[in-house]
Design a protein around this nucleic acid. Structure first.
Lengths: 218, 218
DNA sequence: AAATAAATTTAGACAAGACTAAAAATATTG
DNA sequence: CAATATTTTTAGTCTTGTCTAAATTTATTT
C-alpha cells in the first residue's frame, strides 16, 4: 500500500499534530524525521497527491482522514509489537523501540489482528501509551501528568495525584476542575514552572502543581 | 547491514545452488527473482563488490562464505517466523509465506535469538524445512522423498517409506543403499519416472520407486 | 514600511534498484 | 567450422527518496 518512508512521515505528522494543531511546519517535521526541510517538502507533495495530507504551500501540513487512519494503524502495530517484545520475548521496555520501528511496517491485516488476539488485546504498550483497536479507536485515554506536556501541547484535566484538601482548594481557587482543557503556553526550564491557559485565562503554576494534575490527551 | 533486495538475492542464490552447483546462471536467478536478466547482472555486480558472491562474467555466480552465512540467517529468520505464525498465531501453513518474506528482513540478532528461544528452538518449519541454529548449522537433514527432487538436484539416500521385502530386494538388485548419493538427471512429467545417477551408473526408476525412497539434502 | 531574518520551496544532482533495447559473448547446429 | 540461437552484459532511462545551493515567501525588527 504505502512505503516505509510514507508511513514514517504520516506517523511523525500524527504525533506532531498534538503540539501543532494549526498545522505541522516543514521544519518541525524535518527535525522529527532527522532530515532536511527540502526533503520534507518533496515528500509532503507526494502525500498530498495521494490525499493522505492536506497541504498549502508555506502553511504547514495536516493529516486527511485517510492519512490519520493510516497513521493510527502504524502506531497500533508499533505498540502491539513493543508489547509482544516485552511480554513474550523478555525484552526491556527501553530496548524495543528500534525493532518496533521496523516491525510496524509489516503489511498484513490478519497478522495485526492475530497478534492483538494472541497478546490478549492489550490497552497500553510497555511505555504506558494507549494501543488503538482494529478500528483505530483509543479505548483508554493517554493519561499523563500535566508536567509531562511540552510547550503548545494540550490536554483535558482528568484527575489529581495529590488529593489533599490543600491541593484541591488551590485548584478550586484557580478555577481548575475536571473536564477543563489546559494548554501549555510556556515551560520554564529553570524551575519547571509553566504558563498555562484554562478557559481563556492565563495562569503560571509551579512544578509541584503540574506534577500532581493528571490530564488526558488525544 | 544489507538491503532487503540484497538479502533476497542472496537467499535466491542459496536455494538455487542446490540445483546448480557449478554456479547459478543469470537467467535462473532472474526467473527466481521474477525480474529481468539485466537487473540481475546489475545486482550481482554490487554483491560481488561487497564480497558476498564470487562472480566472473558469463560464468554464473556462487555465494562467498560471507554470502552463505548471510543467506542462512535470512532463511533462519524466515522459517522461525513461519513457525511463529502457525504455532502461536493460528495461521495455516499455506498462508504464512508472504508475511515471512517481510519478517525475514527485520534486523536484530537479539530478536531472532529470543524468538527462537520463545518457540522452543524448533528444528523444522511448518513445511518440514529445517531451521538452522544461531550459528547457521542445520541440525536435521532436509529429509524428503526422492520424488520431490527436481531435475539436477541431488541428495543422499537415508531411508525407505515402503519397507516391504519386495521393495528392499529391488533396491538391492539395483545397488541402491543408505548413504549413497543420488542425482536426478531427468524427470518425465508424463509418468513421473526419473533418470537418476547413482555411483556413476544411470538408472531409470518409476514414480512408485521415487515415492518410497527418503533422501536428505544440504 | 523598509530592511533583515527565518522558514520554505525550487532546481538540479545523486544512489539504489529496476527496466528496455542493443551489443557482445557463449552455445548449438547444420 | 561457419551460421544461427541463446544467454549475458552494457548503455541509457526511470522512480523513490534524499541532498545542497539558490530563490522565494513569510515573519520580525528597527
Amino acid at each position: 500500500m504505502f512505503s516505509f518512508s510514507e508511513e514514517n512521515y504520516l506517523k511523525a505528522i500524527f504525533h506532531l499534530e498534538k503540539k501543532y494543531q494549526a498545522g505541522v511546519s516543514t521544519n518541525a517535521l524535518a527535525e522529527e524525521m532527522e532530515t532536511k526541510a527540502s526533503s520534507v517538502t518533496d515528500m509532503i507533495k507526494k502525500l498530498s497527491e495521494k490525499e493522505l495530507v492536506v497541504y498549502k504551500k508555506y502553511q504547514g501540513v495536516k493529516l486527511s482522514e485517510l492519512g490519520k487512519k493510516t497513521a493510527i494503524q502504524v502506531v497500533r502495530k508499533h505498540r502491539l509489537w513493543e508489547y509482544f517484545l516485552v511480554e513474550k520475548l523478555d525484552f526491556n521496555w527501553d530496548e524495543v523501540h528500534d525493532i518496533a520501528e521496523q516491525l510496524e511496517h509489516i503489511k498484513s491485516e490478519k497478522l495485526t489482528r492475530e497478534l492483538d488476539k494472541f497478546l490478549g488485546f492489550p490497552k497500553r504498550d510497555p511505555h504506558g501509551d494507549p494501543i488503538p483497536d482494529a478500528e483505530g479507536n483509543f479505548s483508554v485515554a493517554n493519561k499523563m501528568l500535566l508536567a509531562e506536556l511540552d510547550k503548545d501541547e494540550k490536554g483535558i484535566c482528568v484527575g489529581v495525584k495529590d488529593s489533599s484538601s490543600e491541593f484541591l482548594r488551590f485548584l478550586d481557587k484557580n478555577n481548575i476542575s475536571l473536564g477543563k482543557e489546559i494548554k501549555v503556553l510556556e515551560k520554564e526550564a529553570f524551575d519547571g514552572s509553566m504558563l498555562i491557559v484554562i478557559e481563556e485565562r492565563e495562569l503560571r503554576i509551579s512544578q509541584l502543581i503540574s506534577n500532581n494534575l493528571y490530564i488526558k490527551t488525544q
